[in-house]
């Protein structure tokens, strides 16, 4: 029973991080209909920016959140304005944007190999190994902090999308872009903003992940695939759907450790993805677009 509770707590804490990174991918797809294959590249970049700030200037990874978010937001806007915007919209541009963003990812990854070598890195702080004891369970301080920041991020994002004029315009563009143009929304501006927000979420997720796990320039590819699984499971745009799907994936992964040899646990996400696609092709929560 004790072990069971521990695993559930571990899964819940992990789900916060998963939801944050998946929401970034889902938001961009929901509004622009572009699969951001560079998601993993930005996750990796977020990890290295946090690592650099910590190594060079001794900045605590949690204090570098604003920097990482701002840098990846600007990077996202630059990638949108410089590259993605020039591709044809809709199905015609789908393959092109996949290739293009995959290319950007390769460039980022190779730049990281060049700059930082392929060695595994970690962000080690004095509280890295500390844990909290509550209800007879010991949980890592870092994991609790990551969970708290992820939940806060998702709540803020939800409020932004549902309560502000710009947030509503983002959801409206996802549902019918021409009608937005007709009422005076500069749809290109919304696309660019959305790409920036989605990219910033990836950067944040990378930084948060880096405070839990070791990473190297290939870091982010596994997370891209996990984000896919969550988006397919949870549908587009609903924060709740994303959170539930993230929890499902985290639970499956965590409990797979009990049943499967270590080298197979990474594959459980795919098994889940295939099962969902076969049994419920529309995702568990249907195809709502940023409702």
């Amino acid at each position: 029973m004790q072990r069971f509770t521990e695993l559930v707590v571990a899964a819940v804490l992990l789900a916060g991080l998963y939801a944050t990174m998946a929401y970034g991918l889902g938001l961009i797809y929901g509004v622009l209909r572009v699969v951001n294959l560079n998601h993993g590249g930005i996750i990796m970049a977020g990890a290295y920016i946090g690592w650099l700030l910590h190594e060079k200037f001794g900045i605590d990874p949690y204090l570098s959140i604003p920097v990482v978010v701002a840098v990846s937001f600007v990077l996202g806007i630059a990638i949108y304005r410089g590259l993605v915007r020039h591709l044809p919209r809709g199905p015609a541009g789908a393959v092109q944007s996949l290739l293009l963003l995959f290319g950007v990812w390769l460039v980022l990854r190779n730049a990281a190999y060049l700059l930082f070598t392929g060695n595994d890195q970690t962000i080690r702080t004095e509280y890295s190994t500390r844990s909290l004891a509550a209800f007879g369970l010991a949980v890592s301080v870092n994991r609790v902090a990551v969970f708290g920041i992820a939940v806060l991020t998702l709540v803020v994002l939800h409020l932004f999308l549902t309560r502000t004029f710009t947030g509503k315009a983002i959801r409206a563009v996802a549902q019918n872009a021409d009608s937005c143009t007709l009422v005076g929304v500069d749809v290109e501006r919304i696309y660019s903003l959305t790409f920036g927000i989605g990219t910033a979420l990836a950067g944040l997720a990378g930084l948060l992940g880096a405070s839990l796990f070791s990473f190297n320039p290939s870091y982010g590819s596994g997370d891209l695939l996990k984000s896919f699984v969550i988006v397919v499971l949870g549908g587009l745009g609903s924060v709740m759907g994303t959170a539930v799907a993230a929890l499902i994936l985290a639970l499956v992964e965590v409990f797979a450790i009990l049943a499967l040899p270590a080298y197979l646990t990474g594959a459980v996400g795919f098994v889940l993805l295939v099962l969902v696609l076969v049994l419920r092709p529309g995702g568990l929560f249907g195809q709502r677009v940023l409702g």
Binding site: A172, Q175, N176, D178, S179, R288, V289, L290, G291
Partner: peptide, 10 residues
């Protein structure tokens, strides 16, 4: 517009 073109989930 023809066909209303509302934002159905707002």
């Amino acid at each position: 517009p023809e066909g209303r073109e509302l934002w159905p989930l707002l």
